[in-house]
């Protein structure tokens, strides 16, 4: 309101109230300050409703029992609405994975696993978000025996690293830990 010059008739800012004006300005400023704090606080509950709710957070971790998975087999589990590939790698696959760092997004295999036998990666192609093939026995696994994305032909190796095609980075490794010999908790 301070930026208009027209003083309306009868406005309180008249010169003969100098002393009062000072007190009113102080009162006005403190009221405005308190009001601004109140308005700011009032906005938070509205914003916070859009954050993940308790029932969503309760599902933010997924526990996986690894015991039924035999060597060379993969399972897909859902974690936070995304597919996670859990693969029990064969000796040959591990050796293959350890031989190289990959080219496009070099990373050592032991940085990508907690136990060499188990590879846990988020099953979403880092190119444009398709789900790569290679989980089921009949699926194409691509040139590097890992996963193959049917959308634009990205091929991942047995460590989930990008080796060929347009995807820029390796399949992401989700945060997880072993809670027992054959159980992991993702998230």
């Amino acid at each position: 309101m301070a930026d208009h010059s027209s003083t309306a008739p009868g406005t309180a800012h008249s010169a003969d109230h100098g002393h009062d004006d000072g007190r009113r300005d102080f009162l006005l400023l403190s009221t405005l300050a308190v009001g601004a704090v109140g308005a700011g606080l009032a906005a938070w509950p509205f914003i916070d409703t859009m954050n993940p709710s308790k029932d969503v957070l309760a599902l933010a971790t997924t526990e996986v029992d690894l015991s039924p998975i035999s060597e060379g087999q993969s399972i897909t589990v859902i974690w936070r609405g995304k597919p996670v590939f859990v693969r029990r790698r064969t000796k040959a696959e591990i050796t293959e994975a350890k031989k190289t760092l990959g080219e496009k997004d070099p990373e050592a295999d032991d940085k990508r696993t907690k136990k060499p036998e188990w590879l846990v990666v988020i099953g979403i192609c880092t190119h444009l978000g398709c789900i790569p093939l290679g989980q089921k026995t009949g699926d194409p696994k691509g040139d590097y025996n890992g996963w193959f994305c049917p959308c634009h032909g990205s091929a991942y190796d047995t460590s989930g690293r990008i080796r060929k095609g347009p995807a820029p980075t390796n399949l992401a490794v989700p945060p997880y830990e072993f809670t027992g010999d054959t159980t992991i908790r993702i998230g």
Binding site: W44, P45, F46, D48, T49, N51, S53, K54, D55
Partner: peptide, 13 residues
């Protein structure tokens, strides 16, 4: 009821 219990400040709104 989910709004009342699980959504942050859902009960308030």
């Amino acid at each position: 009821e989910r709004i009342m219990r699980d959504v942050n400040y859902g009960w308030l709104l």
